[in-house]
Design a protein around this nucleic acid. Sequence first.
DNA 1: CCAAAAGTGTTTTAATTACACCCATGC
DNA 2: GCATGGGTGTAATTAAAACACTTTTGG
Lengths: 243, 243
Amino acid sequence: MSEAPAVAVSTVIFTLRPDDDGNVRLAVALVRRIRAPYEGLWALPGAPLDSNDDLQTAAASALYTTTGLEPRYLEQLYAFGQVDRSPDRIISIVYWALVGADEAAAARENDNVAWFFADAIPPLAFDHSLIAEYALWRLRTKVEYSRVALGFLPETFTLAQLREVYEVVLGKQLDPGNFRRMVESADIVQPTGLRLAGTPHRPPQLYRYNPTRDLTDPDPLTRVASASDTGNRDDIRTLGAAS
Amino acid sequence: MSEAPAVAVSTVIFTLRPDDDGNVRLAVALVRRIRAPYEGLWALPGAPLDSNDDLQTAAASALYTTTGLEPRYLEQLYAFGQVDRSPDRIISIVYWALVGADEAAAARENDNVAWFFADAIPPLAFDHSLIAEYALWRLRTKVEYSRVALGFLPETFTLAQLREVYEVVLGKQLDPGNFRRMVESADIVQPTGLRLAGTPHRPPQLYRYNPTRDLTDPDPLTRVASASDTGNRDDIRTLGAAS
DNA sequence: CCAAAAGTGTTTTAATTACACCCATGC
DNA sequence: GCATGGGTGTAATTAAAACACTTTTGG
């Protein structure tokens, strides 16, 4: 009889950041492994699950430990448990998170913690390459039918900024006019009445996200979480389950 | 310091079965708890994770133990790990499964194992009521954009049977003509060329599911699973991840 | 006035829905 | 023939995409 499987929680952390040419791109936070196995390789941030922590708390804490940031959005991705995915039997419960582009710019980064552009992720330890790819897929599909994109933006923003988030995540240009109508009819945001001044063109309206609506439409899990809020941080806009 | 969390795997098993009036309805398999806590209450079938089993194997085995059946479709639902969801700290990795209506009719059933109609599930042990509700939500949303409905049907079937599955799961009537066109354009099934005889009306065509397509469109996880098939049962039509 | 992005309007296209109607069989 | 569900056709509605055009600012 072998030992009981160990449980770990990891988080795929996404943000937006400009590359050297000034183009905004999707980026993922990775940590370098400092011990065997896969010593020296990059991996997803994570830690063994502390028995006193909820899964979501553990995921947020992995995020905080590596970046010093709080998630704007946090959702469970999948539980990985193939017997041979690691030398020891480890069940990894993986979350994915969005952090604000503004905050991430100031996030810590060093030899062992770094941001990688999503289209240039190096080979990762364990099955983490597959996990990262899956998280990316989930982000992209979810952007199309939910409001998670707001998780990258600060409190107020212009529609052009919001559209840029969609364009970067989806990897394609969007028609400004149609985008505006889509956003308005989906009731995603509220106008603040303020305008952004100082532009060399017509000053755009500033919007904020609609606080009466969650970033995703509520599935039964999210509904329970927001109804009987059991000590969850209220700076995470949704605690949503998968969907 | 408390002990390491234990890992269990449970499965929400769906099938279709007729009620006393002969109406086909969605049903879930439950087992009665024979020990504390929640002794006597109904619960989802499951078991502690054996260190030698993959998660999916464990889910299929929970299914087999309770019903004696093999899943036609099996997908991970969610990992539940709230600290207070059980007296001991237990991380439950939950799968959901579809079994054929024809086979389920012959499945074992006794004082401690029974099928309950999905709209009449009794209060369950632990947080299993919430889990069952979430699985139901996932099944319903997934039926709308994938081909999982085929998981309820035998090898060959008529379009009317397939439509009935959709109607029962979604809880609404569908237009036969439009349904036919939807199925044809989505390339869900293949005509067998055979016809069902003995009806008091025009004999319908028999179809089989399209084996060149999976029951769900492949996300990165499913794609890997089917490409490098690592000992998965080939009678499960997809090993799909969540989506 | 010009450049540039904000913002509005209109046309085209495609997908969805609603519903009328014919077809083929057992009785 | 007639009742019944199988199967086809078509018009109406709605949503998505394409794209022209007007507005408002800084320089």
